[in-house]
């Protein structure tokens, strides 16, 4: 029998994978991918909780998360393209003009 805990653990594992991506990759595009994974991991948790408590609120949150993810992609990619046009690279280490 699959319980809520199964889903939540899966969600946690996926989130950790995303974390690895965020921490390890220096390619900005990869960072975006990793954030998408993280958001989806949370969506699974929301949907699972929604189901196991019989409450639609979780699904509602999942919808808004999707909306936010979509906006983030639109704006983020726009900025990424500008950056690429200016510097010819999407390496994270090139984004280092402000340092103490």
């Amino acid at each position: 029998m699959i319980t809520l805990t199964h889903y939540l653990v899966l969600s946690a594992i996926l989130f950790s994978i995303a974390l690895v991506g965020v921490l390890r990759r220096k390619n900005l595009l990869m960072l975006f991918f990793a954030t998408e994974i993280a958001l989806n991991a949370i969506n699974i948790a929301f949907a699972a909780i929604s189901k196991y408590y019989g409450d639609l609120t979780g699904q509602m949150f999942a919808f808004f998360v999707i909306a936010i993810a979509a906006s983030e992609v639109a704006v983020g990619l726009g900025l990424l393209i500008i950056w690429y046009k200016r510097r010819g690279t999407i390496d994270l280490d090139s984004l280092q003009t402000m340092h103490g």
Partner: peptide, 20 residues
């Protein structure tokens, strides 16, 4: 391919693993 100057694997995997 973007040449990635990746951070040390140990730290990354330790952090992520611990959080998981």
């Amino acid at each position: 391919e973007v040449k990635e100057n990746n951070p040390p694997k140990k730290i990354v995997f330790f952090l992520s693993g611990m959080i998981a």
